[in-house]
Design a protein around this nucleic acid. Structure first.
Lengths: 147, 147
DNA sequence: ATAATTAAGGATGTTTTTATCCTTAATTAT
DNA sequence: ATAATTAAGGATAAAAACATCCTTAATTAT
């Protein structure tokens, strides 16, 4: 009956990736990006996006500042990878855990499809880890979902 | 805060894949596999597994028979691929749709990460389409999640 | 015919995810 | 100091996914 689900990332994580790329693209000499700007650019629900931003701040990927001219900036010590964003919002399951959800699944004690997916998992991890949210190659696309 | 979610397939789909592999492995000269057997082998919730089986039957991947000695068998006209199972239970999103959830995303009008994921998507599709649930190589693993 | 077995299917409940609302805290400008 | 602005955060609601319960329909065996 084909439920609705089945997507690589949770919706929160999709927003998070877009948010991070937008902030990165908007960030020239320490410029802060506000929630309003973000939701306008993304077309995402404001309150929910705010929660996602909170998680990103708590996760150490963003710094936040309140008050007029407040907003968000990327952490400045090291680049934020897409991998980091996924980990903070969705955790390690997609990257690390058994696709059939078996706790005991591992190389020594594999589930039936374990071998089939090892390549994909590695490739996925590789891709997520090789791309920073501030990667200039990400700037060409658009994330506004509106018409 | 790392929610719980983030997995490639829905839980229903995970059950479905296991179910199909189990039925395939249990199927010698048209032998039928019953719900009871299935949930015993998988350690999956009975009523929910029954619903998943219903979907697989409606989706044309299984045939079902009622009454004593009833049960389920794989369709016999053509092999069932993991790809088919995922499509029937979870739909086409994982395989076909934008990882950021953008309806307009496409090669001509890409989202920021479109390029980064094309390789993985292709690889995933390839893998799912190249493996039948009756593939003998799947028999070595176990799916019983119990201790 | 009757009883036993097994899948189908409707109704309902629970949990998780997604989303909104409203108040508080911090910061800046006047 | 006061007002304005912006993020933080608690409470709540809505939707989707996951799960159970119970009755019905079909089939087989006695």
């Amino acid at each position: 009956m084909a439920t609705k689900r089945d997507i690589m990332f949770s919706k929160a994580c999709q927003y998070a990736i877009k948010v991070m790329i937008f902030i990165a693209s908007n960030q020239k000499e320490g410029n802060r990006t506000g929630l309003k700007e973000i939701v306008a650019a993304l077309g995402s629900p404001e309150a929910f996006t705010a929660k996602v931003l909170q998680q990103l701040v708590r996760g150490g990927l963003l710094e936040s500042y309140r008050g007029p001219s407040g907003g968000f900036v990327l952490r400045d010590n090291k680049p934020v990878l897409i991998y980091d964003v996924v980990q903070v919002i969705d955790g390690r399951q997609l990257m690390e855990e058994c696709v059939l959800g078996l706790p005991e699944c591992s190389g020594e004690n594999p589930c039936p499809v374990h071998e089939k997916f090892t390549g994909i998992r590695a490739r996925l991890k590789e891709t997520l880890m090789s791309t920073a949210v501030s990667d200039p190659s990400l700037l060409k696309g658009s994330f506004k979902s509106g018409r």
